[in-house]
Amino acid sequence: MIALTDDQLLRYARNILLPEVDVSGQATLLASHVAVIGVGGLGSPVIQYLAAAGVGHLSLIDDDRVEATNLQRQVIHDTSQLGVSKVASARDFVQRLNPEVRVTVHAQRLTPDNCMALLQDVDLVVIGTDNFASRYLANALCQQQQIPLVTGAAIGTSGQVSSFDFAHQATPCFECLYPKGQEEQLSCATAGVLGPVVGTIGSIMAMEVIKILVHLGQPLFGRLLTWDARVMDWQTFNYGRAKNCPCCTETPL
């Protein structure tokens, strides 16, 4: 277990005061390596809260650059970063917020050729990109390597979150929940989204990451949490492993 310095004990005191976290849980966070795929509306609060909580190493994966249309919801970027790669902008934000967090940036999209290299040696993957090809790739690799996965999505005034525990072979995967060929084609660029919606969903994703890393409470394994912001309605749906899921039978990459 990592021995915390006096500065760390002070900085993370509110985490440590929680019996479910304590010094040992904080040490686990400091020793953890999390990959964040998508550094936009959902990735922004994920990165904010994981860096603030003291997750020791963040790998950020995104091939986009900051545009003016992003600033309405992607709150780790600002006007001074227009035209800068999102991963570089996010790294600058993390360094200002918590300089002791190590940040590795990959200004590229997840592909079959690079996914193994980009996600090696990580303890958990969290994905908030609207690119379904990247989601399926991350799902297959995480299942193969038994890496926990947290996924979220938001559009318009609604969002959803689920998590996957690939340490157990019978667990459902992302493709069980969203079979290929049935994925939603809408995106924030075409349908719009309110900033607080991605902020709320991204914060829940960050909470799921922390819960899984420190074994706190009951993560959303086998459960889909949905939110309709218009009426402030939350619902949770249970789901199981799909009998004919190709990823669960072959785990292709």
Rank of each mutant, 00 (worst) to 15 (best):
I147K: 04
A170K: 11
L149R: 07
V197W: 03
C142F: 04
T190Q: 10
A153H: 05
G222V: 08
G159N: 03
P179T: 06
L225D: 06
S162M: 00
R223S: 08
R135H: 00
P148R: 05
H168Y: 07
L213E: 13
Y178C: 05
L216K: 15
H168T: 12
P148G: 08
D228A: 10
N131S: 14
D130T: 08
V193Y: 10
R135E: 02
Q169C: 05
S162R: 04
G195R: 04
V150L: 09
E184Y: 13
V150R: 07
M207V: 07
S134K: 09
T151C: 12
L216V: 13
S203E: 12
L186W: 10
C142T: 01
G202V: 04
T151A: 14
Q146E: 15
A167E: 08
L177M: 01
M207L: 13
C176V: 01
T226C: 13
A167H: 13
N131K: 12
D165T: 09
P172V: 07
S134L: 07
L149H: 10
P172A: 06
L177V: 03
T190M: 06
L194Y: 04
C188A: 14
N139M: 10
W227H: 12
I201R: 01
I204V: 14
V198M: 05
F166A: 06
L224W: 00
F221H: 14
T157S: 13
Q218W: 00
P196M: 06
L141F: 13
H168M: 05
I201V: 07
T226A: 13
K211Y: 10
L137P: 12
F164G: 01
I147G: 07
P148N: 10
C176H: 01
S203L: 04
N139H: 08
T171W: 08
D228V: 01
F164N: 00
N131F: 12
P172G: 03
C188R: 11
D233C: 13
I155W: 02
K180E: 11
A229Q: 13
N139F: 06
H215M: 05
Q218C: 06
A153Q: 10
V198S: 04
D233W: 15
C188T: 14
F164E: 00
I210R: 11
D130I: 07
Q182H: 15
I212F: 01
A189F: 14
I201P: 03
L149C: 03
T226P: 10
H215K: 13
A170S: 11
D130H: 07
V198Q: 04
L194R: 05
A154L: 02
V214W: 11
C142G: 02
S134H: 14
D233V: 14
W227D: 02
F132G: 00
K211T: 09
V214C: 15
F164A: 06
L225M: 07
